[in-house]
């Protein structure tokens, strides 16, 4: 008679709770290992290329193109925190980028209006995702699969396959500028990561998301609405995808509807390597950022050594599986 409320509520919570417990224990070590790998990788790369990547220009390129992967990884991490998935992340990044570019180029809005509007588009799309999941009780994977298709279409409907250019020289200048050697877009990504960290670590709403993901049963008994958590997580995911879209607009100077096509699978790779579990309840902003950095290093190494770019995907695949295996093994050891 030990579990009185067992069959009526939150069945399955126990399993999820066990998994996230192990991960909680090993999370800090995962972050530590990733940090070591990142530093070591960077060091080896710097040494073997004769300090080439430490040149200001190269370094800037490394960090510039790290911004979008970080934010997209965070966008996926936010929904993973409640045990959901968001397949529309990549398409939404593209839609928001196209929306911002179109508002500037076609409607002649200033970036000050166009970029917030793009963020609003992302948040609304996220809100729709979350609401559909809660209302229909259909698996979030399927709901976002469907909305991904819709969003992809919308993305193309803005300007067909055409490209927007010269929408805002000022914005693009800012996107390529740097402060003390650090690219502005990278700083924006870092600031976003800090905000996301603060949200999950300190804000009541963020803690509630984690409680819902970690043990829906306990969350419910503590007066937390798990439905609201799901909606909020999707909304934030959409907002972050929009931030990534805005970064693309600022960074590249020209956007077309294919933006975001190759972001979906990497959006999963970063949090998964970073130690986030699919069952929810555990997030790691630092781990996600470090994982994005490591994946970026693989890219850089490929460029520096002139390796066939196809090796990158192979290595990333191995890293994903390896990271999960290592953290699982450690989790088992410590429980």
């Amino acid at each position: 008679m030990s579990t009185v409320l067992d069959e009526d509520m939150g069945a399955g919570a126990g399993q999820g709770a066990g998994a996230s417990r192990r991960t909680a224990l090993s999370l800090h070590r995962t972050e530590l290992v990733l940090a070591l790998v990142a530093v070591a990788g960077f060091g080896v790369l710097a040494a073997t290329t004769g300090g080439n990547i430490l040149q200001p220009g190269t370094m800037q390129a490394v960090l510039q193109f790290l911004a979008v992967p970080i934010v997209v990884g965070l966008a996926q991490m936010v929904v993973l925190s409640v045990g959901q998935m968001n397949l529309s992340v990549g398409a939404l990044t593209g839609l928001c980028a196209m929306a911002a570019a179109s508002l500037m180029a076609d409607s002649g809005l200033t970036p000050w209006l166009a970029l917030p509007a793009a963020l609003l588009v992302g948040a609304l799309a996220g809100l729709v995702n979350g609401t559909l999941v809660v209302l229909t009780r259909i698996n979030g994977f399927i709901v976002t699969l469907a909305t991904m298709s819709v969003i992809s279409g919308l993305r193309f409907s803005i300007n067909g396959t055409g490209t927007y250019q010269d929408y805002s020289p000022g914005l693009v200048r800012l996107g390529r500028a740097d402060v003390l050697g650090l690219p502005v877009v990278f700083l924006v990504a870092v600031a976003t990561a800090v905000l996301v960290w603060f949200f999950f670590a300190r804000c009541v709403a963020g803690r509630m998301l984690l409680a819902s993901g970690g043990n829906p049963f306990a969350a419910r008994l503590s007066g937390i609405s798990n439905d609201r958590s799901v909606v909020l997580a999707h909304l934030l995911s959409g907002l972050l995808a929009a931030v990534a879209g805005v970064l693309v607009v600022a960074l590249s100077g020209s956007v077309n509807a294919s933006v975001g096509d190759d972001l979906l699978l990497p959006s999963f790779a970063a949090p998964i390597i970073g130690g986030v579990v699919l069952t929810g309840g555990v997030v790691s902003v630092l781990g996600t950022c470090l994982a994005a950095f490591i994946v970026r290093l693989v890219d850089v190494a490929q460029a520096q050594y002139g390796i066939n770019p196809r090796w990158v995907d192979l290595v990333v695949g191995a890293v994903v599986l390896g990271a999960v295996l290592v953290s699982q093994r450690r989790g088992k050891g410590s429980s």
Partner: peptide, 11 residues
């Protein structure tokens, strides 16, 4: 039982 638990049930 909701083995897949797609949505944390809210009563």
């Amino acid at each position: 039982p909701r083995l897949d638990a797609p949505v944390p049930d809210d009563g």
